[in-house]
Amino acid sequence: MSTTGDPLKRPLVLLIEDEKGLAEEIIAELHRLGYPVQHVDTVAEGLDAARASGAAIMVVDRMLHGSDGLSMVETLREEGVKTPVLVISALSSVDERIRGLKAGGDDYLVKPFAMAELAARIEALLRRLDDVRTTKLRVGELEMDLIEQTVKRGETLIDLLPREFKLLEYFLRRPNQIVTRAMLLEGVWHYRFIPETNVVDVHIGNLRRKIDKAGEPSLITNIRGAGFTLHADA
């Protein structure tokens, strides 16, 4: 299962999941993306593996053979283990979600989820580690001044509405990363639900029209079945 020497040099993911079928699918997807995966299926093994701290991120199911994955996360946090944790759970209510985050989870994903959503969330949590406080964001030709609240593409100033600015900022902080609609709704609009109409796509369309150059491929591309990506090399 080792993927040393992988060109993407992805970090190790510790998966604590007792449902065989789901675990297999998650492992297959993560391997496909180049992540090495360490898989255990009990709380006890999970604690040991997490303490050994080889993993860069943990994916923890809330229900593990009847015991609570959250209490495991709590224990680890008390011990000072800071590895980011993505909690996956069948419990979807807002309260459960808040409980998951309070226990020390960094993100909370409700079953059933698209594999692309899981991958995007893992990537986001991993990138968050090297997210530095900065006043200027630059990706390719795009440059955003967070203090002046201005955006330039090359030398051209781009006029954006406040919410479009927030939307672009979200992308600029995550270049080359898949950003899902749910992540955008949460991160830009603070929506905790998915509206029936794909309003997000309309907002992305508007943003594209402002930042793209005629005749050139769009800086933000659709990733089928997953979300969007802002390309740094465009």
């Binding site: 919410r163 609009w189 929506y191 109409t197 309003v199 309309v202 907002h203 369309g205 508007n206």
Partner: peptide, 10 residues
């Protein structure tokens, strides 16, 4: 309203 305005305009 701000969230839905672009949808209406479209």
């Amino acid at each position: 309203f701000e969230f839905y305005e672009p949808l209406g305009k479209a």
